[in-house]
């Protein structure tokens, strides 16, 4: 059984804003019956340029319905520019989190919003302009690349969880691998370019990272028989190697992301990305 938060259950059992707005300012439709989930989003813009009302209709599982309901609540009262900034992570966060296999439900909500805004502005949907990668679920390279970048995805499985791409026949797995490498390489280059204007020098950054590791992270890991070693810092990428019990621990990736990365982001730099270097 899925581990849904109370907020997901609430929005599933008591969905807000169900229906179609008559003569909407914008309308977005994504998904299909065959794919197993689909969402139609309509909104009406007020004279003040803010979203006055939003309604949805969704075919899909509990998290798809809850994500749609949450989205309509979130965008009411926002300008289109503000609404555009809502990411799938924001939707998931609003709901207190979603099981990782269900993240694509929140992605669908965001895509419907984009489609509705594009419809209002009379412009083509930017994400649909890319090249089709996953034929089974109709996902383009642009959508996949954005998900990799925004949600810091590292594996094909994660990409499937977030976008559904690769969840059917599996023929596109290689292409997704390539996209992951591409995006992460680009991300590194961007962070290198931006390194100069930042306040921290490289030496300062490394010193602070070392300090947090020594002071907080290593003692905590040692309690469970594990340890961590700093290998290198390249722009925002912090390369570490796990030691002791961490090496064989099934939850080590969670530790890395949810604990080590979070601590470093909190105390050193928000943009840091922790990566494991395997020997």
């Amino acid at each position: 059984m899925w581990d849904y938060t109370d907020k997901v259950k609430d929005h599933f059992l008591n969905p807000r804003n169900v229906g179609d707005i008559q003569e909407p300012s914008g309308k977005g439709e994504v998904g299909s019956l065959a794919c197993g989930d689909a969402l139609t989003l309509t909104f009406r813009l007020g004279d003040d340029g803010k979203i006055e009302d939003a309604k949805f209709k969704t075919f899909g599982c509990a998290s798809a319905i809850a994500s749609s309901s949450a989205l309509t609540e979130m965008i009411k009262g926002l300008t289109l520019d503000e609404a555009e900034k809502i990411t799938n992570e924001d939707i998931a966060e609003y709901l207190g989190g979603l099981p990782k296999e269900k993240m694509h439900c929140s992605v669908m909500g965001r895509e419907a919003l984009e489609a509705a805004i594009a419809n209002y502005r009379g412009v083509p949907l930017p994400m649909a302009q890319g090249d089709l990668v996953c034929e089974c679920f109709g996902v383009t390279d642009l959508e996949i690349k954005r998900a990799i970048l925004e949600s810091n995805l590292k594996t094909v499985e994660e990409v499937t969880n977030f976008t559904k791409a690769g969840g059917g026949c599996g023929n596109c797995h290689e292409r997704i691998e390539e996209l992951i490498l591409e995006v992460r390489k680009e991300a590194r280059e961007v962070t290198k370019d931006e390194a100069a204007p930042r306040k921290l020098t490289n030496i300062q950054k490394i010193k602070m990272i070392e300090d947090v590791l020594e002071r907080e992270i290593r003692p905590a890991l040692k309690k469970d028989g594990g340890d961590i070693e700093l290998i290198d810092v390249d722009g925002d990428f912090v390369m570490v190697s796990l030691r002791g019990a961490c090496v064989s621990c099934a939850a080590s990736q969670t530790t890395l992301k949810d604990y080590v990365e979070r601590k470093l982001r909190e105390q050193v730099l928000e943009s840091l990305i922790v990566e494991e270097v395997k020997k």
């Binding site: 977005g28 439709e29 994504v30 998904g31 299909s32 019956l33 065959a34 794919c35 689909a38 139609t40 489609a115 949907l125 649909a128 089709l132 034929e135 089974c136 679920f137 109709g138 059917g168 026949c169």
Partner: peptide
């Protein structure tokens, strides 16, 4: 009922 939206879902499984 049938296709909704711009999805190119084929699902030829």
């Amino acid at each position: 009922p049938g296709k909704v939206g711009s999805s190119q879902c084929k699902c030829v499984c």
